[in-house]
């Protein structure tokens, strides 16, 4: 159900979106683990679900009236509960997005880009992966570029996030034919070709959830 056009997203919209992310990761736990068992160590779904369930638990208690603070809390929770490489990477993404939005009680469409760019920059700094290494960067980079392009032409947030989601999905499936150069999958060499990267997949799922939430609230 669409409510009347809103030009901003509130703290409770953000919290709703985060809750949906927790549900989406939980629903895809087995799928992510299955993707990871082909080229990694078969724990991406389990680890991500542990982290996002911890976030869900924290979101069930009252939260600060500060979107940046909430995102930072999510980042810290992921860092301390996920482990592996995903913990620092997603944790850094949320921490950086939170820092970029510190003190905000409402988001304008442009804030999405500010947060998205900060998150991507954090992931690149922490993981040192580049486009084409068969990692989450392959979904995030085109998504942020699509978001920027759409917002520049005056698109609504939901519309821009939809474009970002499509770009992330294309980036995600684009990891299938390439060879991994980072992480545990890289030890497989050419044997990593033909498998979709689990990290790019979870990144796509989270961006798609943001797009869906924005559409529902008419952001």
């Amino acid at each position: 159900m669409e409510k009347e056009l809103s030009i901003s997203a509130t703290v409770s919209d953000v919290v709703n979106c985060l809750r949906k992310m927790c549900d989406v990761i939980h629903a895809n736990k087995e799928y992510l683990t299955e993707l990871d068992s082909a080229i990694g160590d078969a724990d991406h779904g389990t680890n991500m679900d542990r982290g996002f369930q911890a976030i869900a638990k924290k979101l069930s208690a009252p939260v600060d009236n500060d979107i940046g603070g909430i995102l930072k809390m999510c980042g810290m929770t992921l860092v301390t509960t996920v482990g592996g490489a995903s913990g620092p990477l997603y944790g850094t993404a949320f921490l950086q997005a939170g820092t970029a939005l510190a003190g905000k009680q409402e988001l304008e469409p442009g804030d999405l880009l500010v947060a998205g760019e900060a998150a991507l920059k954090g992931v690149l700094m922490r993981g040192k992966a580049i486009l084409g290494d068969k990692t989450m960067v392959d979904a995030l980079t085109p998504a942020i570029a699509a978001l920027e392009e759409a917002l520049a032409t005056g698109a609504k947030a939901a519309e821009a996030l939809e474009k970002a989601s499509i770009a992330a999905e294309t980036g995600m499936t684009g990891t299938i034919p390439i060879q991994a150069r980072k992480g545990r999958a890289s030890y497989l060499g050419e044997r990593s070709i033909g498998h979709q990267d689990p990290g790019a997949t979870s990144s796509f799922l989270l961006i798609r959830t943001m797009a869906e939430t924005a559409r529902e609230i008419g952001f």
């Binding site: 860092v79 482990g83 592996g84 490489a85 995903s86 913990g87 620092p88 990477l89 944790g91 850094t92 922490r126 993981g127 980072k182 992480g183 545990r184």
Partner: peptide, 11 residues
Amino acid sequence: NYTGDVMNFEM
């Protein structure tokens, strides 16, 4: 030197 260990110890 494992991707996860390296990043967690850097943080």
